[in-house]
Design a protein around this nucleic acid. Sequence first.
DNA 1: GCATTTGATGCCAAAAATCGTATCAATCGA
DNA 2: TCGATTGATACGATTTTTGGCATCAAATGC
Lengths: 307, 307
Amino acid sequence: MRFGPRHITSCLVLAQELHFGRAAQRLATTQPGLSRLVAELEAEVGAKLFRRTTRTVEVTEAGRAFLAECRIGLDHLERAVTLAQRTATGMTGVLRVAYMDFAINGRLPELVRAFSEVRPGIRLELSHVPSQLQREALLNDRIDVGFTLSVVENEHFESLLFDRDSYVALLPVTHPLSNARSLTLKDLAGEPFVLGSGGSWSAYREAFFAICHRRGFHPTVSQEASSSEGIFGLVAAGAGVSTYASCVRNVQRRGIVIRSLNDVPGTIATYATWMKPARSTSLEAFTTFLASVWGAAPSSSNTRLKS
Amino acid sequence: MRFGPRHITSCLVLAQELHFGRAAQRLATTQPGLSRLVAELEAEVGAKLFRRTTRTVEVTEAGRAFLAECRIGLDHLERAVTLAQRTATGMTGVLRVAYMDFAINGRLPELVRAFSEVRPGIRLELSHVPSQLQREALLNDRIDVGFTLSVVENEHFESLLFDRDSYVALLPVTHPLSNARSLTLKDLAGEPFVLGSGGSWSAYREAFFAICHRRGFHPTVSQEASSSEGIFGLVAAGAGVSTYASCVRNVQRRGIVIRSLNDVPGTIATYATWMKPARSTSLEAFTTFLASVWGAAPSSSNTRLKS
DNA sequence: GCATTTGATGCCAAAAATCGTATCAATCGA
DNA sequence: TCGATTGATACGATTTTTGGCATCAAATGC
């Protein structure tokens, strides 16, 4: 393709005017110049675009087809420029957000709604990625920001505390303890537990086991499930009791009762994490929104998940 | 827009290679040249498209958005070239065909099917235009070819005999004569006639009246209708008898019987007509197909509709 | 610290595109 | 037939783009 936008726009104007002189005037050039330009384009395309005598100029069928398609192409190119500008200034863009269960069951949907009100041009692509895999996904530029349980301690990453949940107990409605208004973890010491399995749940399991150890018991695991929905289902089916973050109150699940655990002071923290030299303006807008408007505190060692 | 396809393709290659040296090699240019080209495009667009250090090159979010949109634009431009070529050679195109009732009820559908098999790239746009208006439509470039009863005698037009129909009689099934195997026009002399009205039918009426005059009578017009369907409906309802071209045998209409008219030697000729300096390659393809493959004879005075 | 890699910059010559003028040839109207 | 209009063509001057070379500055790896 050895022709530029100049050739095309010239022909478009000529197709409107159907007169070399007037078209040249509108294009701020001379008639011979336009004549040569059209001839060049026709030679390049390999087809006559205009049928012209000394008295009339008309567009050929090939010319109509060519110019119609070219107009579409030019529109895309112009759109590309404004799109680049808007993306550079953060008005438009895409932000790939990864979340884990506690975030999506907790306040992440609320955050998404609030942010997309402030920045309606930025499209948020949410995907479920286990906490462990989010670090790699950030490094490989598959996501822009991730919501995880643990903080990635690295000079290349930056984190912000997003939310805190307390521990709650999940009981089958048929369970004797389901009538109690509140429980202690000690009350569940002898119960069979349903726990999350696989890499996604290892951090939560470790923290939970540590808490039990402090309370002087080691829980008996009766069933395991890889997803939150699996845990809820097994508890509802009476396979055992479980613990979860308090955000579980947001989800409805028939057959389960949720009870606070009064003797567990520890909280479950969720962090937003991203790579430090912010790669996109959308990410900058998101993190500043998170820090200022959302009012989250930057992560530091004393706010991290303890025991 | 002060940038051409060269800038865009260069950036597209660079976005693939993510290395100025290799990209420059693929583009058959030098690294400084590419560096300058990218800088020019960025200045023109008004946004950084690549984030680059001396060790790494990565595409910015704005760059991704820009290049993705540009690729669409370039694709359209390339497509425009091949489209123009194909249209110029007659492989692709649009042909606007106007028809009147006898053509569409006769062999025109057959012609359309045969032509679109030979030239599948040419789209046929059929529209119903009365014979009288087709001449003006051709002059105003609203149609490319028209099928009419009469031949336009003019140096700017060209015509080809497309089909010949004989006259037939239309009778209500309830009519006493509907049992006869064949009729003569004279048999219908005293019957009330349903005839076409308006400009669309004037040519047919004249020819029909002339035939009747030769048979020594003048038909009594009981009802008029502007469309073929109207005529069929009125005849079926018993409002009178009528005549029509023999192509009417192709259409099904309850309540009507069709009978040959043995004593009418004249035929109804349908002609294809177009403007002589063929404006489009599609039209040329169509007319050559019509003349050679379809086997129609060129119009001349001795083949025209008589009496 | 030093050599290597890599992108940015400056400079210059060659090539190409652009612009303007003059002119020609075809066509139309009177 | 003559004049006016209009697109094509030729030529030259100017500007812009391109290509190539040398060099610089920053980052990397040993």
